[in-house]
């Protein structure tokens, strides 16, 4: 492997000169600069990233951090898609993604429990998911790393974040049940309090229900899985037997709710309309097919990459929340008869 040292020896100049020429820095005559570049091309020189890191201080790596539960067996590859969206954009700039999965214990201990953050192996870090609490987020930012939140946000402190329009999506979905299908007793199956996306989806539901002069009915759960959806559905109809529609925090809960309804012999959608959020793969194949809200995850990834790169190259310094539009996906579970 050809090194900067080899090039320097060939040309009879210093390593520093070669390095400056290769990195487009000042301090090299145009003629010498060209000779360096020509020789590098001829000898098929490739920068040794580890060495380059030492001189330019850039690692060309972005850490993508998720909680271990976020790639669990039951969920859909939401964060995988976001990571892929980022990969494509980042690789064009020569960046790669280092994946970091963290546990509750590590989050509780803080960034010092994560050597990859401490050793400055990356230029930036993306914290993806609602498990990252404000204390942890701010202590990561204090390490001096460019930090971005995905599917999460800080409420009080301006902080760069990319989020789906959870509230708008949920509001549109609930409106659809009220205005198109005439439901007046609609329950919302909420996920854990403290998860931004769940809170915002709940807020969207409440807004739509209040605007129509209807009563809201929110059932809380500790997680957003098919099991909790099943359980929450049963509680919802037990508390309010007049319920005719369910808005679930996500498709996983909706599918669980549908299973519970089916086992009780409740006809869907005629006797119960159930809608979800996320547009996971299986939502199309549920029976009835699930009306839901889709989040353009690849776009979220691309956008996150762009925001990161803008901050890394210093072209943008404002800390703001970026909200990505969601889209209503009408299938049959709300009552609409069109083919999915």
């Amino acid at each position: 492997m050809i090194t900067i040292r080899d090039l320097a020896e060939q040309l009879g100049v210093s390593v520093a000169t070669v390095s400056r020429a290769l990195n487009d820095q000042l301090g090299v005559s145009p003629e010498l600069r060209q000779r360096v570049l020509d020789l590098a091309a001829e000898m098929n020189y490739r920068p040794n990233v580890a060495a380059r890191n030492l001189s330019t201080d850039r690692t060309h790596t972005v850490i993508f951090m998720v909680h271990r539960r976020r790639f669990p067996a039951a969920a859909d590859p939401f964060y995988s898609y976001i990571m892929h969206g980022m990969e494509a954009s980042l690789s064009l700039e020569g960046y790669s993604i280092m994946l970091l999965t963290v546990t509750d214990e590590q989050l509780a201990q803080g960034p010092q429990s994560l050597p990859a953050l401490q050793e400055k192996r990356a230029d930036a870090v993306v914290l993806a998911g609602p498990e990252f609490l404000p204390g942890f987020i701010l202590s990561v930012a204090r390490l001096g790393l460019t930090t971005l939140l995905v599917d999460n946000a800080l409420r009080e402190t301006p902080f760069p974040a990319v989020l789906a329009d959870n509230e708008g999506g949920s509001r549109t979905l609930t409106d659809h049940l009220i205005k198109v299908h005439g439901h007046t007793h609609i329950a919302f199956l909420q996920g854990p309090k403290g998860w931004i996306s769940c809170e915002e989806r709940s807020a969207g539901y409440q807004f739509a229900v209040n605007a129509a002069g209807l009563e809201s009915h929110i059932v809380e759960s500790e997680d957003t899985t098919p099991e909790t959806g099943q359980d929450a559905f049963l509680r919802a109809i037990k508390d309010r037997p007049e319920t005719t529609a369910i808005v679930a925090s996500n498709d996983a809960m909706a599918i669980g709710a549908m299973r519970a309804a089916r086992q009780l012999g409740i006809k869907m959608p005629q006797e119960m309309a159930i809608v979800g959020f996320d547009n996971i793969f299986w939502s199309a194949y549920a029976d009835p097919s699930l009306t839901t809200v889709s989040i353009p995850t690849i776009e979220v990834g691309r956008l996150a990459a762009r925001l990161l790169l803008e901050r890394l190259y210093g072209t943008v310094t404002a800390s703001s929340r970026t909200i990505v539009a969601t889209q209503l996906v009408i299938r049959n579970s709300c009552g609409c008869m069109e083919a999915a």
Partner: peptide, 27 residues
């Protein structure tokens, strides 16, 4: 849908991290 590769990623990430390594993901 490919649940297999999703699960594989999680398993490998954890195994690597336990040994002080990380996965570098590229397109």
């Amino acid at each position: 849908v490919n649940p297999i590769l999703d699960q594989l990623l999680q398993s490998m990430a954890q195994a690597a991290e336990t040994a002080g390594y990380h996965l570098l993901c590229f397109p």
